[in-house]
């Protein structure tokens, strides 16, 4: 069981969350070309090792999170809200 430290809810089992995908993907503008969208939607680095990825606390606070996790060992290095504004709010609270 991976344990994810949700910045809003605390440490929880990964079964409360759903895995999103590679968080390093920058989705292009809606009017970008099909080639740019093809790259973002279909192509993956597929890192073996530490990767930055999204998780959704779907059975919790419903927040999307950015997680640095090793895809070999499942070790998590960091968790932060995907929304930068919320990340900032948490910073201010500290």
């Amino acid at each position: 069981m991976i344990r994810i430290k949700c910045p809003f809810c605390g440490e929880r089992d990964h079964s409360e969350f759903t895995y999103g995908g590679d968080a390093s993907i920058v989705y292009p503008a809606l009017d970008a070309t099909a080639e740019e969208w093809h790259e973002a939607v279909f192509m993956r680095e597929n890192i073996r090792g530490m990767q930055t990825e999204t998780w959704h606390h779907v059975n919790g606070c419903r927040m999307w999170l950015i997680v640095q996790r090793d895809t070999m060992t499942h070790e998590i290095r960091s968790v932060r809200p995907a929304h930068e504004g919320l990340a900032g709010v948490l910073e201010d609270d500290r």
Binding site: M1, I2, S15, T71, M72
Partner: peptide, 13 residues
């Protein structure tokens, strides 16, 4: 297991 992984080990859920 619903999340990307190269580990040949599963989890309980």
């Amino acid at each position: 297991d619903w999340y990307k992984s190269y580990a040949q080990r599963g989890n309980l859920p």
